[in-house]
Structures are given as C-alpha cells and as structure tokens.
C-alpha cells in the first residue's frame, strides 16, 4: 500500500510538471477523396485546444500505419517553436492511423541531500543516474498520441491493436462521427479491454469560450464507453492508467497514457 501510494504520488508530482498540458495531433482534414489527397498534421503541447502556443510535440515516435497495415513515413517533417508539422500523402484507399508513440522513464532520487529528477529514455537511465544516488524511484512511461484520417471509405486494418499500452479500438469508426449521434469505442490496456478507465473529452475551440466544457466518461466491463456528440468539431480525448509490466528493473510501475483527436462532422 505504501509503495502504491508513493508511486501514485510520484506520478502526481511528475504529472503536474510533465502532463498538465495537453498533447495533441491535429490533422488538416479527416475524410478525404481525390486523385492524390494529402493531409498535413500539426503536433503540439498546449493548454488550449487546438492552438499551438506552448511547445512543439517531438516527432521521434511518429508511427503512421497505412490502410494495408504497413508503416509509411511522414513527409516534410519540421519542428518549430510552438508546433511540429508533417504531411502524409494518402496513396491507399482506407483509414490511416497516425500516432506518436513514446516510451521512457521518470526517475527521482537524492544525491548529497538534494532531491533530483530525471526524465528520459530507458537506455539513458543507467548512465544518467549517478552511482551514489539514494532513494531512487523510477516510473516507466508509455504514451500514445494519435488521430485517424480516411481516404474514401473507412477501413479497420490499420486500427488493429499492437497490444502495448492504452489503445482504442473502434466499435464506431473514428472517421464516421456525426453531431447528434452516439458513438462507442473500446479501450484496451496491453491488448485487453480495460474497465474503469477515466476519460476526459474536450471539444476544440476552447479559446472562444469561458469553460473547458469537458465530459468525463468511464469504460464499462467490456472496456467500452459511449458518447453522444453535442456539436460538430475537433475533439480531444485523454485517458491514462498504470500497470506493473515494466521493462526496466528499477521501475516499480509503468504509467500508460493515451490521447486522441477525432473530427465530428455536422449532419
């Protein structure tokens, strides 16, 4: 119990610095057609949705899955002051899954009576933590930030779960969302439906209203949740959880986070 409390505390502490902002991908369009359609995607970290005014989202973990299940490269990648950008030519018909998947560690320790923190890759942990560090606490993290775009009719191949971390599988297709309708999705943790995940859902355009107007949802026994879209717009969804399936021996727990952007069209 103490250990659980401490690890939650660690997440809470680190969380306020690392995760208070919203991380997001915003595609220029989600339903496309034409001889050679392209989407361009903004990637940023900010408080307001979907405005880039704080930090760019690094593109190191960019994974784009094409409708046939193969991975394709993001073109024209650029990391700017406030946002990153990349383009995706949609050569295939069907749904693309565009994700930034990052793994790493948070660590906190004491050295010479001073409390220190470290955040970085799993590989760098060994060499970055000094040998005389005491009270070392390490939390592994795995995050997935994603969005979906479709050329022509929606397909499911690219949405097959990888079995790692938090993932969303469609009951309703993420590129078939319309205002006034109810949509259902299933959330998986490490490939298995996860009950009791707490979800926050916010419609974009927050700069032009006084409240976040966030919606809180919880997954049921099948890992499913449903939402009725009150208005059209770009929506941002976030959830997180933790498990013990760490790949770093020093880590006692693993923090799993998920964020996705959905476009809801008017009727």
């Amino acid at each position: 119990m103490t250990r659980f409390l401490l690890s939650t505390l660690a997440i809470a502490v680190i969380g306020t610095t690392a995760f208070a902002h919203k991380v997001w991908l915003r595609p220029s369009q989600t339903q496309l057609s034409g001889a050679e359609p392209w989407v361009t995607v903004d990637a940023a970290v900010s408080n307001d949705l979907f405005y880039f005014n704080h930090f760019p989202l690094r593109l190191d973990g960019l994974v784009i899955t094409a409708p046939d299940g193969n991975q394709v490269q993001g073109e024209n990648q650029s990391v700017g002051k406030y946002r990153s950008v990349f383009d995706v030519p949609l050569h295939q018909q069907g749904t693309y899954r565009i994700a930034i998947v990052n793994g790493g560690v948070f660590a906190s320790y004491e050295q010479g009576g001073q409390r220190r923190r470290f955040r970085g890759s799993i590989e760098s942990l060994e060499k970055e933590i000094p040998a005389d560090a005491t009270n070392l606490r390490v939390t592994e993290r795995l995050s997935r930030i994603e969005t979906f775009v479709t050329n022509g009719a929606p397909t499911d191949e690219a949405l097959k779960p990888t079995g790692k971390g938090v993932e969303l599988v469609p009951v309703s297709h993420p590129n078939d969302l319309y205002a006034g309708e109810e949509s259902t999705f299933r959330l998986l943790v490490n490939g298995k439906p996860a009950e009791g995940l707490e979800i926050e859902l916010i419609r974009g355009g927050t700069r032009y209203r006084n409240a976040q107007d966030e919606v809180h949802l919880t997954t049921d026994a099948n890992g499913e949740f449903s939402v009725t879209w009150s208005e059209p717009g770009m929506y941002w969804l976030e959830t997180s959880t933790e498990d013990k399936e760490t790949s770093v021996p020093q880590a006692t727990s693993r923090y799993l986070s998920y964020a996705a952007t959905f476009e809801v069209l008017p009727q």
Binding site: L32, S33, G34, A35
Partner: peptide, 10 residues
C-alpha cells in the same frame, strides 16, 4: 489532373 474534381466530393 485526372480526377482532380473528386477532391471536393466529401
């Protein structure tokens, strides 16, 4: 370009 008008069909 061939089929360029289909871009706006959505």
């Amino acid at each position: 370009n061939k089929d360029e008008g289909t871009k706006w069909l959505p």
